[in-house]
Amino acid sequence: MIHRTVLEFSLLIGLVLATGCGASDADRSDATQTDDLDRTVRIERPVERVVSLAPNLTELAYAAGGGSKLVAVTTADDYPPAVDTLNRISALPVDFEAITAKNPDLVLATDQVNPPGDTKTFDSLDLPVYFFSFSSLSDVFEGIRTMGTLLGTEEVAADSARTLERQIASLRARTESIPPAERPRVLVLIGDETLYSFGQGSYIHTLVEVAGGRSITDSLDASAPTLSEEFVLTEKPDVIVGAWGADYDPKRLLELHPTWDVVPALQNDRVYSLPASLLLRPGPRLVEGARRLAKRLHPDRFRTLSADTSLASRSVPEAPSSIAERAPTP
């Protein structure tokens, strides 16, 4: 009996010395998770200090109710407003030194931003890093649940994910009845000068479909294609949606591509721009992106919901922004 106590005590001391963090060692238990790169990640619980290496991961962590565990985010983070008080770390290239100095229990990364090769350096520093990979909308919702498991906020995360899924489902229910002939053919662009777009297997096509349109780039082989002007001329999109921010002047598109004066989207003034973070960031605010998209694609059907607030209060229990800033459950 005494032996066991001594043994446990020395193990504990060893742990304290090895990790240099004496807090809450008593209820520490280790968990092994498999991340989206199929790596095995050993995480020491409880997870209290987390570094996020991509803005969408930060948003997912807040949505999962673990936002208060973040100790540092990237220099590109801008949402939710709570990140303004957090430390900033350069993510490209990763500032390993600043991350180590934060002594995190867990580092969140995504293969869309972080080179998977960085895992080796994290391993040699003995910092657990979990890689996310998002290709579909359901990956994003699943990502919230995973985030909840990692951060120990499973219930809040499950609630959040369910709410977002319900929001998408209710939007889909409203657009499902739209006959194919009335579904505009939509081109989603990332750049306005160089025509970066989304190809096969991207979540953006689901977003367009839920909003009541048809994405014309969903069968392109490359996952991040650069389109030609000719492609746009021959495909004749009814609507062009860009991730160029809310202040974008649609006339600029015709100045940059004068030959497009015959494209229906430009002829009928159906060029819209949304904030980039609502379209390009695989996170909880994609739902808001889908909603705004629906309003642009079908202004007549969504006229009753012209203001975002009325939409939020009517059809869904809460707006994503309030999810994002919700404090974790104790």
């Binding site: 490209l92 990763v94 350096t121």
Partner: peptide, 22 residues
């Protein structure tokens, strides 16, 4: 794999970032 592009770019310009003992 478009994700590797950034890594390649940085490395083409020459960098000692993330060096490990191994």
């Amino acid at each position: 794999e478009p994700d590797k592009l950034r890594a390649v770019l940085f490395w083409l310009l020459g960098s000692l970032s993330g060096t490990r003992w191994e």
